[in-house]
Deep mutational scan, measured.
Amino acid sequence: CHSECLGNCSQPDDPTKCVACRNFYLDGRCVETCPPPYYHFQDWRCVNFSFCQDLHHKCKNSRRQGCHQYVIHNNKCIPECPSGYTMNSSNLLCTPCLGPCPKVCHLLEGEKTIDSVTSAQELRGCTVINGSLIINIRGGNNLAAELEANLGLIEEISGYLKIRRSYALVSLSFFRKLRLIRGETLEIGNYSFYALDNQNLRQLWDWSKHNLTITQGKLFFHYNPKLCLSEIHKMEEVSGTKGRQERNDIALKTNGDQASCENELLKFSYIRTSFDKILLRWEPYWPPDFRDLLGFMLFYKEAPYQNVTEFDGQDACGSNSWTVVDIDPPLRSNDPKSQNHPGWLMRGLKPWTQYAIFVKTLVTFSDERRTYGAKSDIIYVQTDATNPSVPLDPISVSNSSSQIILKWKPPSDPNGNITHYLVFWERQAEDSELFELDYCLKGLKLPSRTWSPPFESEDSQKHNQSEYEDSAGECCSCPKTDSQILKELEESSFRKTFEDYLHNVVFVPRKT
């Protein structure tokens, strides 16, 4: 048989008469490798580009789960590009990614509803959504962080984005990388972005840091009482949809009607710091009717980097990364020049730590249904340095008659930039024990000054392991946590139920 035959053949030295091919099969003959313009397919066939392209389009058009959109890589027609490569849609070739590779997620039936953290986790790592997304989240724990972890990498949506009755959302900033909504599939009414009845939605994105392009379709905003109209108009300008909307697409009466839409800028007039305090004062603000001013709200939190936005980490279910302080308005003076500047002394802060701070007014709604208010920009203030805590785990070892090696770990709280350490030492008198000992005694162990690591005695271990207080009263049991108490109650309830079950099964009433 021919060298490319495997198993047997019907005619000697003829690659077209093989029972099976050793390498690849091409047009009725066995070959060692697939010549151009053919590609290896499933490690035994040679196919042309049209064959591989037909497989790709067949799966793409069917949208069946589990099928493969075949691509070409290293002269092979394979189910998908290997790690580190992405497909070129024009020629199906796998090309190296520039940075992290995109991950295209194809949605069944063309859309997916995100109504819980669990459903959001199914899209973790996706960068391109081939379909439409509907966000409908009523509640949950730590929602802002969970949504950002699972949806934060999405850069492109081919269909539309719909935010509907998501009472738990305060902001859409968890879509931190969303840059493009194509609108290839539109919501009824030709809408590519749809926001309806979101009672706590206050911000779409921080438009000073976020760009969003909507290729096709219109915007729809109705019944978002805490979303200011200025935020919607800003989205029109940034996304390129200005002029597409009709009169009733953006409701003037049901958007922002319960919001404090600040239209003035508060400026800080005085800032002073110490290692654990920050004193702030800002310019006074009074609405047209000074009785509408209820006070100020001061927001602050630790910020290692200057990239904080107002609604980071917030949701309507209680999660809030900001510390909020309510401040009463100052006494009002008739003389504008003698107006008191409101302020606040922030206490209990960490030394040498940068804080993000902003302040906003708290006002009631005027009778004319106009909203007044003022808010400052987010500023960054760093507390002063102070003395560091003591170095940890000092170790001293003498390696000769004239040297001592000293080692330690950095302090747990540096409280500033540590530039150097101060080492103090003092000579001590020799131990009298060394002169009084009889060095001729056998088995004498000389006193040693070398360091030995501390260890816990058996008594201390027994005390720590004991669940009861000892007789001397030195140790006591740790208080039980809520989960331990709940577990004990469940076990007790189970024992009672099981005992009742045994009584009912074992003891049967005697027939009379």
Score class of each variant (00 low, 15 high):
residue 254 T to M: 13
residue 274 S to T: 12
residue 217 G to T: 00
residue 313 G to R: 12
residue 357 I to H: 00
residue 268 F to K: 00
residue 214 I to G: 01
residue 335 D to I: 12
residue 242 K to A: 05
residue 236 E to N: 15
residue 327 I to H: 02
residue 177 K to Y: 09
residue 333 S to D: 13
residue 112 K to V: 07
residue 360 K to W: 15
residue 293 L to P: 06
residue 346 M to R: 01
residue 321 S to F: 10
residue 399 N to W: 08
residue 119 S to F: 04
residue 305 Y to K: 03
residue 192 S to P: 03
residue 343 G to T: 15
residue 322 W to G: 02
residue 300 Y to T: 03
residue 228 C to G: 02
residue 153 L to H: 08
residue 280 L to K: 00
residue 238 V to A: 07
residue 336 P to R: 04
residue 267 K to N: 10
residue 285 Y to W: 08
residue 173 S to L: 09
residue 139 G to W: 06
residue 150 N to T: 07
residue 315 D to Q: 15
residue 158 S to R: 09
residue 297 M to N: 15
residue 152 G to Q: 06
residue 271 I to D: 00
residue 194 Y to S: 09
residue 242 K to F: 08
residue 176 R to P: 07
residue 286 W to P: 05
residue 277 K to C: 15
residue 205 W to G: 05
residue 305 Y to R: 09
residue 189 G to I: 01
residue 365 F to V: 13
residue 190 N to M: 15
residue 248 N to W: 12
residue 241 T to F: 09
residue 232 I to G: 01
residue 250 I to N: 14
residue 390 V to M: 10
residue 382 Q to T: 11
residue 258 Q to R: 09
residue 211 N to T: 11
residue 202 R to Y: 11
residue 299 F to A: 15
residue 288 P to G: 03
residue 353 T to M: 02
residue 293 L to M: 11
residue 227 L to W: 00
residue 152 G to C: 10
residue 134 I to K: 01
residue 177 K to V: 08
residue 409 K to V: 11
residue 195 A to I: 13
residue 346 M to V: 04
residue 411 P to H: 02
residue 368 E to R: 15
residue 235 M to V: 04
residue 288 P to E: 13
residue 291 R to I: 11
residue 149 A to I: 05
residue 316 A to Y: 06
residue 356 A to R: 02
residue 203 Q to M: 10
residue 377 D to T: 12
residue 399 N to V: 08
residue 228 C to T: 03
residue 346 M to S: 03
residue 135 I to E: 00
residue 140 G to Y: 08
residue 175 F to Y: 02
residue 122 E to R: 12
residue 313 G to S: 07
residue 352 W to S: 13
residue 220 F to Y: 03
residue 395 I to S: 07
residue 338 S to C: 04
residue 269 S to C: 12
residue 357 I to S: 01
residue 237 E to S: 05
residue 273 T to H: 11
residue 154 I to H: 00
residue 227 L to V: 08
residue 208 S to R: 08
residue 248 N to Y: 11
residue 266 L to A: 01
residue 221 F to A: 14
residue 159 G to D: 01
residue 404 I to S: 03
residue 356 A to L: 01
residue 121 Q to L: 12
residue 214 I to T: 06
residue 405 I to L: 15
residue 317 C to H: 15
residue 309 T to R: 05
residue 341 H to Q: 13
residue 336 P to Q: 14
residue 238 V to Y: 11
residue 299 F to S: 02
residue 158 S to P: 00
residue 286 W to Y: 05
residue 220 F to D: 04
residue 244 R to S: 05
residue 346 M to W: 01
residue 107 L to R: 05
residue 228 C to F: 04
residue 187 E to K: 14
residue 315 D to T: 05
residue 251 A to I: 07
residue 324 V to H: 08
residue 197 D to L: 15
residue 150 N to D: 05
residue 156 E to T: 10
residue 256 G to R: 05
residue 305 Y to H: 12
residue 322 W to S: 01
residue 218 K to S: 01
residue 118 T to A: 02
residue 151 L to G: 01
residue 328 D to N: 14
residue 292 D to K: 04
residue 399 N to K: 08
residue 342 P to K: 03
residue 164 R to V: 03
residue 246 E to H: 12
residue 333 S to A: 04
residue 334 N to L: 04
residue 122 E to F: 04
residue 154 I to N: 01
residue 402 S to P: 03
residue 255 N to Y: 04
residue 342 P to M: 11
residue 211 N to H: 11
residue 373 G to S: 03
residue 109 E to L: 10
residue 365 F to P: 15
residue 149 A to P: 03
residue 206 D to H: 04
residue 232 I to P: 03
residue 161 L to T: 02
residue 400 S to C: 07
residue 258 Q to M: 05
residue 203 Q to F: 03
residue 364 T to D: 15
residue 272 R to V: 12
residue 347 R to V: 11
residue 120 A to G: 12
residue 141 N to H: 12
residue 249 D to S: 04
residue 242 K to T: 06
residue 306 Q to M: 00
residue 201 L to I: 05
residue 140 G to D: 06
residue 195 A to P: 00
residue 165 R to I: 12
residue 277 K to L: 08
residue 249 D to G: 10
residue 243 G to R: 07
residue 398 S to V: 04
residue 146 E to S: 04
residue 194 Y to V: 11
residue 372 Y to V: 13
residue 121 Q to E: 08
residue 116 S to A: 04
residue 252 L to R: 10
residue 265 L to Y: 08
residue 253 K to D: 03
residue 341 H to S: 13
residue 402 S to H: 12
residue 193 F to C: 02
residue 283 E to R: 14
residue 252 L to I: 10
residue 263 N to C: 08
residue 211 N to S: 12
residue 267 K to E: 02
residue 205 W to F: 12
residue 281 R to H: 09
residue 246 E to P: 13
residue 371 T to I: 15
residue 196 L to R: 09
residue 128 V to H: 14
residue 186 L to T: 08
residue 168 A to Y: 11
residue 117 V to G: 13
residue 342 P to D: 08
residue 405 I to M: 01
residue 234 K to F: 08
residue 410 P to F: 07
residue 342 P to N: 08
residue 103 K to R: 13
residue 336 P to I: 03
residue 114 I to F: 02
residue 346 M to I: 07
residue 252 L to G: 14
residue 126 C to G: 00
residue 401 S to Y: 12
residue 127 T to G: 05
residue 289 D to R: 08
residue 160 Y to I: 01
residue 228 C to N: 03
residue 138 R to D: 03
residue 144 A to T: 03
